[in-house]
Amino acid sequence: MEILDNFKAIEVESPVDKIIRQIRDLIIAGYLNPGDKLPSERKLSEKFSVGRTHIRNAIRKLEFYGIVTTNPQSGVFVKGADIAAMKGLITNVMKIEDPDFYSLVETRCFLEISSVENAALRRNDEDLKSLEEACKAYEDKVHQNLPPENEDFLFHLKIAEASHNSVSKTLLLIVLPDILEIYRREHVCANVGVKKSFVEHRNIFNAIKEGDPNLAAKYMKEHLSDVLEFSRKKRNL
Score class of each variant (00 low, 15 high):
Asp5Phe: 11
Ile10Leu: 14
Ile10Tyr: 13
Val12Met: 13
Ser14Glu: 12
Pro15Met: 11
Ile19Thr: 03
Arg21Val: 00
Gln22Phe: 10
Gln22Met: 09
Ile23Phe: 01
Arg24Ile: 04
Asp25Trp: 07
Asn33Ile: 01
Gly35Arg: 07
Asp36His: 00
Lys37Tyr: 09
Leu38Asp: 01
Ser45Lys: 00
Ser49Phe: 06
Ser49Asp: 03
Val50Lys: 07
Gly51Leu: 00
Gly51Trp: 00
Arg52Ile: 02
Thr53Val: 07
Ile55Gln: 02
Arg56Ile: 04
Ile59Lys: 08
Arg60Trp: 08
Lys61Gly: 02
Leu62Gln: 06
Phe64Pro: 05
Tyr65Thr: 00
Gly66Asn: 12
Thr69Asn: 11
Pro72Gly: 10
Pro72Ile: 11
Gly75Ala: 12
Gly75Trp: 07
Lys79Tyr: 08
Leu89Ser: 12
Leu89Asp: 00
Thr91Trp: 11
Val93Thr: 03
Met94Leu: 08
Ile96Met: 00
Phe101Gly: 05
Leu104Trp: 11
Thr107Gly: 06
Ile113Arg: 04
Ser115Met: 05
Val116Trp: 08
Glu117Asn: 05
Ala119Met: 00
Ala120Pro: 10
Asn124Thr: 10
Asp125Gln: 10
Asp127Ala: 07
Glu132Phe: 09
Cys135Met: 03
Cys135Tyr: 09
Cys135Asp: 04
Gln144Cys: 08
Leu146Asn: 11
Glu149Leu: 13
Asn150Cys: 13
Ile159Leu: 15
Ile159Met: 15
Ala162Leu: 15
Ala162Asp: 14
Asn165Gln: 14
Lys169Ser: 15
Lys169Trp: 15
Thr170Lys: 14
Leu176Ile: 14
Ile179Glu: 09
Ile182Ala: 13
Arg184Val: 14
Arg184Ser: 14
Arg184Glu: 14
Arg185Ile: 13
Asn191Lys: 15
Val192His: 04
Val192Tyr: 10
Gly193Gln: 07
Val194Met: 10
Lys196His: 14
Phe198Glu: 14
Arg202Ala: 01
Asn203Trp: 01
Asn206Cys: 08
Lys209Leu: 12
Pro213His: 01
Pro213Tyr: 06
Asn214Ala: 14
Asn214Lys: 12
Ala216Lys: 03
Lys218Val: 02
Lys218Thr: 03
Met220Pro: 03
Lys221Ser: 11
Glu222Thr: 11
Leu224Gly: 02
Val227His: 02
Leu228Gln: 04
Phe230Gln: 02
Arg232Gly: 02
Lys234Glu: 10
Arg235Gln: 10
Arg235Pro: 00
Asn236Tyr: 01
